[in-house]
Every structure is written in C-alpha cells, then in structure tokens.
C-alpha cells in the first residue's frame, strides 16, 4: 500500500492546466523531494494530496483512499503560507488543533516545540519569527501523528540556522516514526541531506521519478569538444555549449567516449539540466 499514488492526475484552473497526466507512486518510508520551477504544479499536487483540491481528471490516493475533499486521518499537511490562528497564543493554538483532531499527541507537540531554540508557548503566534512560526506549524502537523507528511516549501523564508533546525525536526520524525515525507523546495543542496527519492515536476508533468541514488547513477555529465558529439550515447537531456567545450547531461550514457570526461551529476546539476531542457522546449 503506497502512502501516496497518482493515476493520470490532472488539474485545470479555468483554461490553464496546472497538472496533466501525472502518474507516480511514493513508496512507504521514503523522503521524497518534490522539485520543479515556480508554477510547475508542486503546490497543487500537495494540496490535492491533502484533500484540499479535487483533481479534474484521474485519481489521487492516500493510503489507498481517494482524496475526496477530506484530509486522510494519517496525512498531515504544512501549507506554504503557514495558516495558523495568529491571534492565539501557541498554547491556545495547540489546544485548538487538539480539539479539531480525533488522534492527537500533546507529547509530540511539546517535544517538537521544545526542540532546539524552543518556542515561547505564551507568545502570540503573530509575534513569532518566521522560523518559529514554521516550527509551530510543523509541530501542529506532527501532533496528528501522521504516516504521510506533506511539506510545501518548509524552508522558504528561513535563515540558515532555522533551516537547519527545521530539517533536523523532519529527520528526527523520519528516524523516530518512519514517516513518509513529501517535501517541496527550491533549496536542492538542503534537500540532498534528507531526501532519498526524487519527483521532478515541470510543465504540469512528472519528468523524473525515482530513488535519488539510482537516478543519479543513471545519468552522466560529459564534458568534451564542441565539434564532435557523434560518439556520445544515451538520451540527451540538456546541453550547454560554449566556444570551447560542451557540457552534456545524458541518461543511460554508459562509458565516456574518447576525448570526453564523464562524471556522475549531483542532484543540483541534474535538476538544473532537466529544468533548463524543459524551459528550452517551452520557448521553442
């Protein structure tokens, strides 16, 4: 049973398709990096998984239950704008969230709020820093004891220290409870530390879906002469050509031919390669 699976999911806003024909399955216990440019449909996908948005076509299932305008009891969602009752204190907010849930762990919330810098529980949510607010929002999400945690840009607006703290909260959750996590972010270097699965969405479609190690091993970055690319095998994903040399991102390239230097790409250059390619496709 996959925590999250999509079958030909599409979502149309008026005339624009935010997602089209998306099919994938998230394996249990994985930490999935959901990456893509702005407007790729990442937020739509997460909101759909949280039961907030209904798919126009296809079906999205959380724990084998179609999301039908309701959040699955085992799913927690951290929205991008961190919706919290800002006129309440942290303590009151905790009480409110506990009252709105059938299953709730006050201990878990206390634990997360007490982690690292800690959050003043009698402060109004409004007065907290962006980092502390994200920490509170994550604490509320974890209080539901989820088996699937959906995080929409959990690291945006955070300073490096808060970013590190937030990542550590997520890693602790995964280590303690084996929670499956889907996290969307632009900060690829940060994601690399916590994620083991990649889901690359662009133009409303899934471009890459797989274990990060495997995906990286499948790809090669080849640097070589501009003149002759005939010896290069595999599928060309993207290429940057300057006056002197070409840098190619290839899938299933095998060994580097004579005159070319081959390396395994890191996550950042892999994602960059795909995004550059899809932008060029759109511009063409």
């Amino acid at each position: 049973m996959n925590p999250l699976s999509a079958t030909a999911v599409g979502k149309r806003y008026r005339t624009r398709w935010a997602l089209r024909e998306c099919s994938f399955a998230v394996p249990e216990g994985k930490v999935v990096a959901l990456v893509g440019p702005n407007g790729a449909g990442k937020s739509t996908l997460l909101r759909m998984a949280a039961g907030l948005v209904r798919p126009t076509t296809g079906e999205l299932r959380t724990f084998d239950t179609p999301t039908d305008g309701r959040t699955h009891p085992d799913v927690s969602f951290l929205a991008q704008d961190r919706p919290l009752y800002r006129d309440l204190t942290v303590r009151e907010l905790t009480r409110a969230c506990a009252a709105m849930n059938d299953r709730w762990s006050a201990d878990r919330v206390r634990e997360v709020l007490g982690l690292l810098a800690g959050v003043d529980r009698d402060a109004k949510v409004d007065t907290l820093s962006a980092g502390a607010r994200t920490q509170v929002a994550i604490a509320m999400a974890l209080g539901r004891l989820p088996r699937l945690l959906l995080l929409d840009e959990p690291l945006s607006d955070l300073d490096p220290l808060a970013r590190d703290e937030t990542l550590r909260i997520i890693m602790t959750e995964v280590a303690d409870r084996g929670t499956t996590v889907v996290v969307s972010s632009h900060l690829l270097s940060d994601l690399r530390e916590v994620c083991d699965h990649l889901l690359l969405v662009d133009g409303g479609r899934v471009q890459v879906d797989g274990d990060i190690e495997e995906v990286l091993a499948e790809h090669r970055v080849l640097v070589g002469p501009v003149a002759d690319e005939s010896a290069v095998g595999g599928t060309l994903i993207s290429a940057t050509r300057t006056g002197r040399q070409s840098t190619l991102l290839l899938r299933g390239a095998g060994r580097a031919p004579e005159g070319w230097a081959g390396t395994e790409p890191d996550l950042e250059s892999l994602v960059m390669g795909y995004l550059r390619a899809s932008r060029e496709r759109r511009l063409r």
Partner: peptide, 18 residues
C-alpha cells in the same frame, strides 16, 4: 482571506461540523 480555513480543513474535523 487569511487562509486559516486550510488549517481547519486539514484536521480531522469535518467541514460541516467546523
């Protein structure tokens, strides 16, 4: 307006009860 309905809609409580 403030988006806080998302907080309520992603808890166990049903929309009707909320």
């Amino acid at each position: 307006e403030q988006g806080t309905h998302v907080l309520a809609f992603t808890q166990s409580v049903s929309r009707t009860r909320w």
